[in-house]
Every structure is written in C-alpha cells, then in structure tokens.
Amino acid sequence: MIDRQSKLPISRQAELLDISRGSVYYLPKPVSEPDLDIMRRLDELHLKHPFMGARQLRDRLNLQGIPIGRKRVKTLMMKMGIEAVYCMPNTSKKTLGHEIYPYLLRGMTINRANQVWALDTTYIPLAKGFAYLTAVVDWATRKVLAAKVAITLEACHAVDVLEQAFKRYGRPD
C-alpha cells in the first residue's frame, strides 16, 4: 500500500490511506529468549493445571526458581492467548440478537466413514514461537483426512484444509 519509491511523501500517503504514520515505520520486536522460555513453562503449567490464573502460575514459576511478577505472567498469558478455565457467570443465558443454530447431530448414530467430519485447530509450541495445526477428522474412523501446519491462525487455512478433504474424499453425508 505504501510505495517508498514514490515522489509522494510517506506522511502524505499515510494520510490518504487514513492510517497512522507511525504504523508505517513500526517494526515488531521479536520475543526474547528468556520470555520464550517462560512462555514454554507457562504453557506446560497451563496444560497440567488449566484452572490456575496468573497468581498461581507466578507462584509455581517462583518455586521453579524463575523470579517473575503477577503482571508479567498476565501479560505473557494474554500474548499466548491462554486464560484460566473456571465457571463463568451467566454462560447459559441467551443474548438478544444472537442466532441459535440447531445441533444437527443430536440423536444421530455415527457408524460409518464419511458420515460426519470434524475440523479442529491446535497450536504446537516450537523453539521460537508457535505453529498451528488444522485438521479434518472423520468421526467414525478417526482418520485424519487432511491437515495443514501454518504459522498464523487465519480462517483461510481452515478453508484450505476443508477444500483439500473435499477433493480427496468428496463431501460427508
């Protein structure tokens, strides 16, 4: 969008595009090695104890010899997209304006291949960051019909995996 070779100044290009001039020059900082190590430990602790919040995770990390504060743990948890799992209030109350979709599999016996598929995305911790695995699985046979690993979590990857499964196996019932 911004043409750095243009005679038009970058500030004017940003103004015409209605974007912040600072965003043109912004370069994201890579996550530091110590933070990646702490994030990996947070991920392991969260998988073992998903009910723990920032305070309990901080205490566990301090016991492991990692001096860290609650706010830093909370910041890293937000960056990783993890939060404590607990009962939240009013989860069963309907919200006005939200469409309610019927559960199409209720009462259905799933006993053969290509009857019902499921699509799931999960993240995989790597040495420097994370990757996302998206897969289409047949419910009856538990066979992985198509899969894709990506470094971003975008809907286009799920669409690609579904199209790949449709090409190979047709559409499920």
Rank of each mutant, 00 (worst) to 15 (best):
V144H: 09
E154L: 13
T134Y: 00
T134M: 06
K143Q: 14
A150M: 05
Y132K: 04
L145V: 03
T152F: 13
W139F: 10
R142W: 05
F130Q: 03
A147H: 04
K148Y: 05
A146M: 07
Y132E: 06
L153M: 13
V144G: 12
L145N: 00
E154K: 14
A127Y: 07
V136K: 00
A146F: 01
K128Y: 08
L153A: 10
T141I: 14
K143A: 13
I151E: 09
A147L: 06
V144M: 12
A150S: 15
V144L: 15
H157A: 08
V144E: 10
I151S: 10
L153Y: 00
V144D: 10
R142Q: 14
A147W: 00
T134C: 14
G129E: 08
W139A: 03
R142D: 08
V136H: 03
E154D: 15
F130M: 09
K148G: 05
A131C: 14
G129K: 07
V144N: 14
W139P: 01
V149Y: 09
T134D: 02
T141S: 15
V137D: 00
F130H: 04
A150R: 03
D138N: 09
A155R: 12
L145I: 04
A140R: 02
D138V: 01
T152M: 11
K128I: 02
A147E: 02
T141K: 10
V137R: 12
A131M: 10
H157Q: 07
G129T: 07
A140F: 13
W139V: 10
T134R: 00
D138I: 01
A127F: 08
A127R: 10
T141Y: 13
V137M: 15
W139C: 06
A155D: 13
A131Y: 01
V136P: 00
I151P: 01
G129S: 08
K128S: 11
A127S: 13
G129A: 07
G129R: 06
A158F: 05
V149T: 11
V137N: 06
C156F: 09
V144S: 12
K148M: 09
K128P: 01
A135S: 15
D138Y: 04
H157Y: 15
K128V: 06
V136C: 09
T134W: 03
A127P: 01
A131D: 03
V137L: 14
A135W: 03
L133N: 03
A127C: 09
V149C: 12
A146Q: 02
F130V: 05
L153Q: 11
V144Q: 09
E154V: 11
A158M: 08
Y132G: 03
A158D: 09
V149F: 11
H157N: 09
A135F: 04
V144C: 15
E154N: 13
H157P: 00
V136E: 02
R142E: 08
V136I: 15
L153E: 10
T141D: 09
V144P: 02
A150P: 00
G129V: 06
A147K: 02
V137I: 15
K148D: 06
